[in-house]
């Protein structure tokens, strides 16, 4: 499944970049994080309870930041496994200065879902994924704006 989109953030690009570039950013981006710790440079391991409404499951996984190109882009590579199944994916976040005070965040993500959730949840997976990505990015944008 491929997703892409963009968000406008009312904050300068440098500021947004700083906000995006630490473990707290990941905590904000990934909904339902219960624990997250750094295990290697740019690599984090954690547990998150992910889902929509009452359709939720706990996943354990790692997420890694790669191809870091300050202050414009990085790639997130992650995978998680849990009772409902496993998720693997990567996404690129690109920041473009729309004006000195606003930044456009573009994202491109490619996600693979496996296990029970893939075999019984087809009707809802795409919608739920979009919802979660948008919620995460929106929270991140708000965080960047607050920090600015």
């Amino acid at each position: 499944m491929k997703f892409s989109g963009s968000h406008t953030i009312n904050a300068p690009r440098e500021r947004v970049w700083t906000t995006l570039n630490d473990i707290e950013a990941l905590r904000t981006l990934i909904p339902g994080v219960e624990s997250l710790e750094q295990t290697a440079p740019d690599t984090y391991h954690g547990v998150a309870k992910i889902g929509v409404a009452s359709i939720k499951g706990e996943y354990t996984g790692t997420i890694r930041m790669a191809d870091i190109d300050p202050p414009s882009s990085y790639r997130l590579v992650g995978e998680g496994r849990g009772r409902p199944g496993h998720v693997k994916g990567e996404g690129t976040i690109t920041l473009v200065a729309a004006s000195p005070e606003t930044t456009t965040l573009h994202y491109d993500a490619d996600m693979q879902v496996g296990g029970p959730i893939a075999s019984v949840g087809q009707r809802l997976i795409e919608g739920a994924s979009k919802l979660l990505i948008n919620q995460g990015l929106k929270a991140l944008a708000q965080k960047a704006e607050r920090a600015a």
């Binding site: 879902v113 496996g114 296990g115 029970p116 893939a118 075999s119 019984v120 087809q122």
Partner: peptide, 14 residues
């Protein structure tokens, strides 16, 4: 099946 071998029609919902 998807390309990863996941059976997407795994229940009578699909």
């Amino acid at each position: 099946y998807d390309d990863n071998g996941q059976l997407l029609t795994g229940s009578l919902m699909d």
